[in-house]
Design a protein around this nucleic acid. Structure first.
Length: 505
DNA sequence: AAAAAAT
């Protein structure tokens, strides 16, 4: 592969329109093998992570004194951090150890265009930055436009951070791709494009995506849109075919970044894409956003983007308290279906919308079939379906035409439908070995409910010893109680749902 | 064995 970095490739002859006064160092090309598997475990800690654990703990109690509009628990900042005496401000020392950032109390402080501010206020109806936005937007939008690894809770406004980041950094006069956003699923691509186009409504900035039909057929068309959003397979294809010209890309975003850096095929593509873009633009700004970064992925991210500012949340504060979580012990597998039929479906009209997560595509199909034959109306989605069918199912669910959606983990991350109040884990989330709990997946799944501080509940349907242990381990990991609800007691179900705030009476 | 791509 030409990408293998034995020699530090720097195309100094390439035009460099970067306004940043600070030339970033080329990341030390230390045995920079492709992909995570070999060099992964032996990674040295990133510079800024040295002693950061202690620092993070010391700072766990730091609060921004002014209440943000979104109820977002404490963030700890994994770069060196100090707190200014003046109220309402958090000053964060940047990864270079010299400059610092002050959290933004208003959107006005961020040097945004009038058109962009108008989009925020009139189209998005935002008033002030949420907590994660206040902290990260200055890092993203103000010189020297450093890279950023940021963790924030589900439903706390991450999308706004990177969407605004992209819009804010695009030069509206330059008709060429300048911002690139990579997502793990088609559904997220569509969703992010919708958000970006709303927010940028008055800016004239154009956006296309791999889910948009225009480019899907005509391969030779060159993309002129300033923002490009896509899944990585198709993006790589576009880059190879030179449909997508990367020479002007100044900001590269990975949504659900920990997923994109996992040791699957994703990671390889992600690392390659970063290397390729760095060759074109050495000081490209890279943003890695997710609600979850386990320790391994975190270290890998720090290696891939070593000069990044970093914002992380302690594990204990990750589990969202607003989402009430329960376990339902079902003696037989068939009792899970009974719970759906007897408890969930009859109540669904009062519940808002429900997503039922299953482990395999086959279960999604068969469970859907079973419910339909019994006269229970619902839809299902899995990655094996054709694109039009997927789009249709999602569209109907967003419109509220359908109330109950059966899904594989294709929708476990990022999918944002405000009306979802209930999540059912028909199968508890497990890793590939089918025994290890998939902690991150669990958090993302239940995070489909309780968006932006609204009510939410999650039921884990449990059959057998192995599933019970998985729930126990999830409970212990997040230090969050997952009490039992009897599978055949309708009154208890109603009571629990009422307590979770989902029904009135 | 979920997911992504395209032939």
């Amino acid at each position: 592969m030409a990408l293998n970095g034995g020699t530090p490739t720097r195309w100094a002859d390439e035009e460099d329109e970067e306004t940043s006064p600070q030339q970033h160092q080329q990341p030390p090309a230390d045995d920079d093998d492709d992909g995570p598997p070999p060099g992964f475990e032996t990674t040295r800690p990133a510079a800024s992570a040295g002693g950061a654990d202690a620092a993070a703990e010391a700072l766990a109690g730091v609060k921004v004194s002014e209440e943000p509009p979104v109820d977002d628990p404490d963030l700890s900042i994994r770069a060196e951090t100090l707190v200014d005496d003046s109220p309402g401000e958090v000053k964060t020392v940047a990864a270079d150890g010299a400059s610092f950032y002050t959290s933004a109390k208003t959107f006005e402080e961020l040097g945004l265009s009038q058109e962009l501010l108008q989009g925020l206020y009139t189209e998005m109806k935002f008033e002030r930055p949420s907590r994660i936005q206040a902290q990260t937007l200055p890092m993203i939008l103000l010189p020297p436009f450093r890279s950023l690894i940021a963790q924030a809770h589900n439903g706390s406004g991450k999308t706004t951070c990177f969407t605004l980041g992209m819009l804010g950094r695009v030069d509206p006069q330059l008709q060429a791709p300048q911002a690139l956003c990579v997502c793990p699923t088609r559904e997220l691509v569509v969703q992010n494009q919708m958000v970006l186009e709303r927010m940028g409504k008055f800016t004239g900035i154009t956006c296309t995506s791999t889910a948009a039909a225009d480019y899907a057929t005509s391969r030779r068309t060159r993309i002129n849109d300033q923002v490009v959003i896509g899944t990585h397979g198709k993006l790589r294809d576009w880059m190879q075919k030179r449909v997508l010209d990367v020479r002007n890309i100044r900001i590269l975003v990975f949504d659900e970044a920990d997923e994109m850096l996992k040791q699957d095929a994703f990671a390889d593509d992600t690392v390659r894409m970063i290397k390729q873009l760095r060759q074109a633009t050495p000081n490209i700004q890279i943003l890695l956003f997710s609600a979850t970064f386990n320790e391994r992925v975190k270290r890998f991210a720090q290696k891939i983007v070593p000069d990044a500012n970093q914002v992380f949340i302690p594990k204990e504060e990750l589990s969202l308290d607003v989402i009430k979580q329960y376990r339902v012990l079902c003696p037989q597998g068939s009792d899970k279906v009974k719970v759906l039929k007897d408890m969930i479906f009859p109540l669904c009209e009062k519940l808002g919308q429900t997503i039922i997560f299953v482990r395999t595509r086959e279960t999604a199909r068969s469970l859907h079939a079973v419910m339909e034959t019994e006269g229970h109306k619902c839809t299902s989605i899995e990655g094996g379906m054709d694109k039009q069918a997927r789009d249709k199912v999602v569209r109907e669910f967003r419109e509220g035409t359908t109330k109950i959606l059966i899904s594989t983990d294709v929708l476990s991350r990022g999918f944002d439908v405000t009306q979802v109040t209930l999540v059912i884990n028909f199968d508890v989330p497990v890793e590939r070995d089918l025994r290890t709990p998939a902690f991150e997946t669990y958090l993302h799944r239940i995070g489909r409910s309780g968006r932006f501080g609204r009510k939410g509940a999650a039921f884990n349907l449990v059959t057998g010893e192995s599933e019970r242990r998985v729930v126990d381990e999830i409970q212990a990991y997040f230090k969050h109680d997952i009490p039992e609800v009897p599978y055949d007691d309708e009154d208890k179900f109603v009571e629990v749902l009422r307590k979770a705030g989902l029904t009135e009476g």
